[in-house]
Design a protein around this nucleic acid. Sequence first.
DNA 1: CACCGGTCTTGACAGTGTCAAGTTGTGTGC
DNA 2: GCACACAACTTGACACTGTCAAGACCGGTG
Lengths: 187, 187
Amino acid sequence: MTDRYHHGDLRRALIDAAVEAVAEAGPSALSLRAVAKRAGVSHAAPAHHFGDKAGLLTAVAAEGFERFADALEAAWGDTGDFYAVGAAYVRFAIDRRPYFAVMFRPELVHTDDPDLERAAARAAAALHRGSGESDPDAGFNAAALGAWSLAHGFAELLIAGNFPPAVRADPEAAFKAVAQATGLGRA
Amino acid sequence: MTDRYHHGDLRRALIDAAVEAVAEAGPSALSLRAVAKRAGVSHAAPAHHFGDKAGLLTAVAAEGFERFADALEAAWGDTGDFYAVGAAYVRFAIDRRPYFAVMFRPELVHTDDPDLERAAARAAAALHRGSGESDPDAGFNAAALGAWSLAHGFAELLIAGNFPPAVRADPEAAFKAVAQATGLGRA
DNA sequence: CACCGGTCTTGACAGTGTCAAGTTGTGTGC
DNA sequence: GCACACAACTTGACACTGTCAAGACCGGTG
């Protein structure tokens, strides 16, 4: 099965290999040839399935958004409040770091990919659930964008290593404290 | 002067060339050889001054943090409130995009570089000015981290193209609306 | 004027993404 | 059951990349 000429599910194997590689050295250090070697195929096999290096990362990002949407939806189900969803946002960035490292990087992926767009839209819907309509005057929902910005910025700064040790020790608890300090979550 | 064998200020010229290149295609697409060509020197000249590709980007990031600190300090001077500083944060991310694209990317730079550390510390000090001491129990200042996360997340999501057109039309005004919606800035 | 140290160049190396062409297997229509 | 068409993958090549060692060049100090 595994040593067939036709791999069976090479696409899946390549995505997994890419996720591992990103987890080890980040997306900018990703090498298609290294991914191919990890999956045990020739150096040009990835290009056949994904067209492009960006194509492979696009597939990773799309899968990431799907898992992200799952995590956010589950967080709504648990307690239903904003803190839980924000904490899930932060937890995803930590636990699924290789996915997160690719998901909000337009220069690394094909932003017009239908699968990616669909998955990203699902995640956005899961995130904004229950945050009401956007203000027709302003053209956007200020509270929802604020919550998103807060969670995203916290996750991004945390991952980049800009937060003190006390935050890194328990990021979810720290996020809740930070969110409360801003006055958010009372809506 | 410019066609001398000893360039005069090649280091400066290389940084400028790198900033231009990053502005055009992002930091991941940066090529040392292209930077060298842009500055009119041989392909190995950058390595002599910066040791490394990461070394060049480190110099760019350090310069970025200096300008960033300037901008934040100026914003405090203007009106002295949080909204102005947050808006300056967002404006910097837009106007000085090539710098911002490198400043919070630990995988692209030498995070232990003394110049970079000094500049980043200055920017952090400028950002947290007037936000009081950190809570000794928690080990961090929740309100300050919240403000930082909000501004940073907003800037990051805006740049990545995740916000609706109404926000992109006037990002600073949108940020103020978003910050107000969270209840922040009343401290 | 000799010399020395820093500045930059030249040349080489292994590794990269991408493309064109070829090879190998798999399923389909007959 | 068999030829054929097509998809999956390989092979080989190309231009380009970052990095290193060695050399050429220049400015200033003795």
